[in-house]
């Protein structure tokens, strides 16, 4: 097989990955009443309709609050655990790592069922608390993997210098380690937020009746059929989960260049 054949194959594979999503974005600007092809013009009417759709706006609020809370808890747990794994010689480190990434190795449906049944038995039925617990345990492994990869690159020398100059460990952590870790913290938090914001399988098991997140809202709207409104909702979600991280990365880069580091 020649190099050119591989190149064409790669282009086709990328086309396969992105074309359907591009069509979602394209159709969300469709002026055509049924939201189908052929497109009859460009319009923002479907976005306007979303804005006036109470159920959709409620779902957005739920998703954002849930995502933010998940990000805070998951990142805190993840950073602490990563520090221990990267900085210390922990006995049984491989076993601990496997244990910490276990939530991604267990099929999500099984994790969802186990958590629902156990917490329900403890008296925590389908509720926001259950959703939050589920999203935390589901995002934690990803945060740990991302944060750990970034922490490895921070040299210990700087901290040791601070300690030898008389700072206590807590001061060292907050004035030296944490600022250096900030990109890792931000990456972990963003990752947790997007995964939580996008999650659907677990959410369908855990959510109380009447509460919808954006993905479950799309799911229930799909029961009828595809509509331009769903495409518009999809476009907004793509902007949130793809656009925001890219923007964040760009801003971080600008800031880093300005401060000259």
């Amino acid at each position: 097989m020649g190099w050119n054949a591989i190149r064409i194959w790669t282009v086709l594979v990328y086309g396969f990955m992105f074309l359907p999503v591009a069509v979602v974005v394209l159709l969300s600007f469709n002026a055509n009443q049924f939201g189908s092809f052929p497109m009859s013009g460009v319009s923002l009417r479907w976005f306007e309709e979303l804005w006036h759709n109470d159920a959709v706006m409620r779902a957005f609020r739920t998703s954002i609050v849930l995502g933010l809370m998940t990000a805070v808890i998951s990142t805190t747990l993840g950073i602490l655990a990563s520090l221990a794994l990267v900085r210390y010689n922990v006995p049984g480190r491989n076993t601990i790592t496997t244990l910490l990434i276990a939530p991604i190795l267990v099929p999500e449906v099984v994790l969802a069922v186990a958590l629902l049944l156990f917490l329900n038995w403890l008296g925590i039925g389908k509720s926001f608390a259950l959703l939050l617990a589920g999203h935390v345990i589901f995002t934690l492994p990803f945060v740990i993997l991302v944060v750990q990869a970034r922490l490895v690159s921070i040299k210990r020398d700087v901290e040791e210098a601070a300690l030898s100059l008389g700072a206590n460990p807590v001061q060292t952590f907050f004035s030296v380690t944490l600022p250096l870790m900030l990109p890792a913290v931000a990456a972990g938090a963003l990752f947790a937020f997007t995964i939580s914001f996008d999650d659907i399988t677990g959410t369908l098991f855990w959510k109380p009746g009447g509460v919808e997140t954006v993905p479950t809202q799309i799911f229930s709207m799909l029961r009828n059929s595809i509509s331009p409104e769903i495409n518009a909702l999809g476009t907004v979600m793509i902007i949130m989960t793809v656009g925001l991280p890219l923007l964040g990365a760009a801003v971080a880069r600008k800031l880093a260049m300005k401060s000259g580091t």
Binding site: M17, F18, V21, I200, P215, I230, G234, M237, V242
Partner: peptide, 17 residues
Amino acid sequence: LPFWISYIIRTMSWINI
């Protein structure tokens, strides 16, 4: 990018196709 785009959106996108 696909990792950042919701699974349900990528799945339903095929209905448009």
